[in-house]
Design a protein around this nucleic acid. Structure first.
Length: 124
RNA sequence: UGAGGACGCCAGACGAUCGCAGGCGGCAACGCCUGAGGAAAGUCCGAGCACCACAGGGCAGGGUGCCGGUUAACUGCCGGUGGAGGCGACUUUAAGGAAAGUGCAACAGAGAUAUACCGCGGCUCUCUCUGAGAGGCGUAAGGGUGGAAAGGCGAGGUAAGAGCUCACCCGCGGCCUGGCGACUGGCCCGCGCUGUAAACCCCACCUGGUGCAAGAUUGAUAGGGAGGCAAGGGCGAAGCCCCUCGGGGCUCUGUCCGGCGGCGGCCCGUCGCGCCUCCGGGUAAUCGCUUGAGCCUGCUGGCAACUGCAGGCCCAGACAGAUGAUCGUCCAAUACAGAACUCGGCUUACAGACGCCACUCACAAU
RNA sequence: GCCUCCAUGGUCAAGCGGUUAAGACGUCGCCCUCUCACGGCGAAAACUGGGGUUCGAGUCCCCAUGGAGGUG
């Protein structure tokens, strides 16, 4: 991957202003957004003016370390894809079996899910 | 060599690239520094801190419970005493009081806090008379039941027996000795008491409640709406009226009782006063928020827990919540696991790799 | 994060420290019926785990595990 695009640096940063805010926003997206499930993930998408992404992994998945690991993987994958995403509010939910999945498998699943939900920009 | 026993430590490392959070610098681009644990966990104790309550006293409730020390404090820790376990090194122990009182002790057993089923013994009577049966008496050694049967064991003693007597032992009590003390050792014309207090309880000591979603500041918003009830009694003062001159009635006011509410278990007590029901409203930012009973090193005192002194250090502070991804090298290989106000403990989970000991036992060799 | 509560057959549940741990629904077997249902008889099936106190713990104490609720 390195060296293929020497001239332009890809913007792969993902600071906190792209994160979905408080609990109220989550509830709003749950109510109004459209849900796209897959085996270990659920994506809820709602059109909006700016890009906001939230991650949610419930206590049923595992202990704090497991949940943190899953959330970090998701955030890492989303970080790399950030510029390709359409604007709007996203919530990514980890489902119960997600603790047993490896990181590469999870990356694939996420990409498939995003394609199927049709939230990637056409020119990407 | 094997089997153990104490004590302690680590919790993958390094490099490259892309990222995240906080701080500092900079107009900015960006740069530099820092960035989870030994248990961060469970929330089982103890504190700090904050608010609420609080004149004081009593009761209730809760906690602790061998002794001494340590600490800010503790149900922690250290050292000891007694008990239990182990051949031993050593481990472990909620370990005050049952002689203040109450309760409970199923089943079994004759009897469970005082009893006599079998038995043993002699006495009287009867018979088919070396024996058997009946009656009443003595007895608690033996049998049997039980977790426990009123000390144990031996000798004397006796009709048979019994702390009935004696020696030794056990326990209790008293005295003396050593120890700060728990307790140890010794002595006695003393006594012989079931167990249970993690049953009620007694004794000694401690103990307000709620918890950072505590709370503070600033700004915005609000400063509410609807309905019902506001009763009763005693005493005193004043005014008016009636009057058989004893007094009675009405009005107003003060006070007390009563009522309601607060003091977040209750009472005395104390404070406040119109009361009750339903509906509505309670948001955001900043602070609290990390320098602290702090960590490291050395020395001092102490068996130790710990303490004192000197020097050095700053070591996460988020607010949907920061440590990740990819690659490479080393490696036998990464378990349990993620800060949320902060400390001191306890408990629980944990792959693997180590260190150390004038430690113990067994076998062998010398 | 903080606070509180609970745990007994597959489910709902009662249970003074003392025989073999009630009861209901469900399951299984037999009977009844032409068959099913109803009904009758019977059976299997449990104290979350580990320590401790006690002669004896489902019950009392401690620790853990799992679950539920409250709190902006």
């Amino acid at each position: 991957m390195e060296g293929t695009r020497e001239g332009e640096r890809r913007d792969e940063r993902f600071p906190r202003r792209y994160r979905l805010g408080s609990n109220r926003n989550y509830r709003y997206v749950y109510r109004k957004g459209k849900s796209h499930p897959s085996r270990n993930l659920v994506l809820i998408y709602l059109k909006g003016r700016e890009l906001k992404i939230g991650f949610s992994v419930s206590g049923k998945v595992g202990n704090a370390v497991t949940r943190n690991r899953v959330r970090r993987w998701l955030r890492e994958d989303v970080r790399r894809l950030r510029t390709q995403l359409k604007r709007g509010k996203y919530v990514l939910i980890g489902r119960q079996g997600i603790a047993d999945v490896s990181h590469p498998a999870l990356t694939k699943e996420l990409q498939k899910l995003l394609t199927r939900a049709n939230v990637l920009k056409e020119d990407a």
